[in-house]
């Protein structure tokens, strides 16, 4: 048992009357949201403990250093398996966190300032967004938040409420 299949979201099997359904933790919460908020929960996410210095196994994956020994990789959902394989190495602990983290994309620095005291010019960073530990990435005015999926509804409520106040 080298791979922890039960952690992955791309190892389900259809057949025998079963058709597993991936359900985003934000599915209900974002039902009423406008186009400025996007659900990124399905993105492939792999956390690595250990050295990834020389790793160049999957060029398309985005790399977010969390601590010197911890790195988060983001990739397209269908690339997750390849990414896991490429990262596999006895010196590393590779954990598929696709199902662990909900993802949310939103626009506007002003909105983010209502949610977090992180330095928005110093991203990516991990910090408190709406009092939940969140990985925050920025591309121009676009922000991506990754946070524990069990807070998805709570987070969506706060984000939509804050947006309504602007």
């Amino acid at each position: 048992m080298s791979e922890l299949e039960f952690l992955s979201t791309d190892r389900t099997r259809t057949g025998g009357g079963f058709e597993p359904v991936f359900r985003s933790p934000l599915a209900d919460a974002l039902a009423a949201a406008g186009p400025d908020v996007r659900d990124l929960s399905a993105l492939g996410k792999v956390e690595v403990r250990g050295d990834v210095e020389g790793f160049d196994g999957l060029a398309s994956a985005e790399r977010i250093p969390l601590t010197p020994g911890r790195t988060l990789f983001l990739c397209a959902p269908e690339e997750t398996a390849r990414l896991r394989e490429a990262l596999a190495d006895p010196s590393r602990t590779v954990v598929d966190v696709t199902g662990a983290l909900a993802g949310l994309e939103l626009r506007g620095e002003r909105l983010l300032r209502r949610l977090t005291d992180l330095d928005l010019d110093g991203l990516p960073a991990v910090g408190a967004v709406a009092r939940v530990t969140t990985i925050v990435l920025r591309t121009g005015e676009e922000f991506r938040l990754f946070f524990p999926q069990e807070y998805a509804r709570s987070m969506a409520e706060v984000v939509l409420d804050a947006a309504a106040g602007l």
């Binding site: 933790p25 524990p148 999926q149 509804r153 706060v158 409420d161 106040g165």
Partner: peptide, 14 residues
């Protein structure tokens, strides 16, 4: 402020 209290819900909550 807005007084939100973070709540954790399982994926089966609904």
């Amino acid at each position: 402020g807005r007084g939100h209290e973070p709540a954790r819900r399982t994926s089966i909550h609904e």
